[in-house]
Design a protein around this nucleic acid. Structure first.
Lengths: 189, 189
DNA sequence: TCTACCATGTAATCTGTTACATGATTGC
DNA sequence: GCAATCATGTAACAGATTACATGGTAGA
């Protein structure tokens, strides 16, 4: 369970509660790691049972109370042996937008441009967020800073590709104006 | 099941057997989609039961025989309604290398550089493959060509980041020569 | 008034990974 | 001789998503 080790890693920096862990991952590592709250709460509970973390309930005024977790000695050892051992696993990646993109040739170009336009807006928003991160992480741990830089570069590259794609498809649409239906299908390898 | 729709999409181009589908995805879409054969064979079977595809057994000399799948009318309709409908799902992304990278500060810099060096070699290999794809897809369907371009750009960006990271960490190592242990931990948000 | 955000949790379901199972051929 | 590639499949397990469940506050 890589979620487990990732949480243990984050708890090295500071104590956190489940909701915060999720927000933190989205904010800082969204370009390399996605997560649901349905994974975090059961994971934290299990880690508590295993003695890897300890909990303190913190009540708040006007807000639901938090369960703040701290890493234990045992948790640190567990984390360290994970960090030092282990052959790398494969990357897991599923991007529904790109999966659809491949097959845009079987639908209308107008719809394709519409969907690409939405992605552009979305990634413009992400880019701002990641640029903020970069500033915040500038004087911190070198690895976290490098990860933030990757986030910005990745986002910039993806945005520039999206705009290029938009442009290329528009061009192609003008070229084939008057014609209709699908393009000729290429011969797949 | 996005695996299902992706297979239906591929079968629009040409008939394929399970093993080929896997190879094809790895070769052409590895930068946006990873897959195991343990997903493909059961999916194909299920799709056959649902009447989305038809099968033909093709015997070969000196090799195991293949089960070649073709998309049916029903399969095309199913695919088309998927393509046109549907709000986008979230991206699923898990990169074990980057997850480890974030926490390299808790291990040794030498080990970090070693692991980064391995990734550089790996992505140099991938880059070659993706550049080959780009040439092969140059005159094909615009969307597939654009996806191939994304693959190359993504790979180039990642490689340049890896080299930059390697350099930055080396620099940092020299700066702190003589000192030992970990860096100061930054205050997380 | 309605949406978004804060904050936790569980259960059912859906997906993905790994190991087991088999076995021939090609290239180093 | 050994590893990789071709080719299919299943079963057990691990991991991820969604919906259900609850409920207050802040801002548009």
């Amino acid at each position: 369970m890589s979620v487990k080790y990732a949480i243990l890693g984050l708890l090295h920096y500071k104590d956190m509660h489940g909701y915060k862990i999720k927000k933190h991952i989205e904010q800082n590592f969204g370009h390399m790691w996605t997560i649901n709250h349905g994974q975090i709460y059961p994971a934290l509970k299990k880690m508590e049972d295993e003695g890897l973390v300890t909990v303190t309930r913190v009540d708040q005024e006007g807000r639901p109370s938090r369960k703040v977790y701290s890493i234990s000695e045992k948790g640190m050892h567990t984390f360290r042996s994970w960090l030092e051992s282990d052959p790398e696993k494969n990357m897991l990646l599923r991007d529904p937008f790109l999966t659809r993109f491949v097959f845009f040739g079987f639908g209308s170009k107008e719809r394709a441009l519409e969907i690409i336009g939405e992605q552009i807006k979305l990634y413009e928003k992400y880019l701002k967020k990641r640029q903020d991160n970069l500033v915040r992480w500038q004087r911190q741990d070198i690895y976290v800073r490098l990860i933030a830089e990757l986030g910005v570069r990745l986002n910039e590259m993806f945005l520039s590709w999206l705009r290029y794609a938009y442009h290329e498809i528009s061009k192609d649409m003008e070229k084939t104006r008057g014609e209709q239906g699908q393009q000729a299908l290429g011969g797949l390898t």
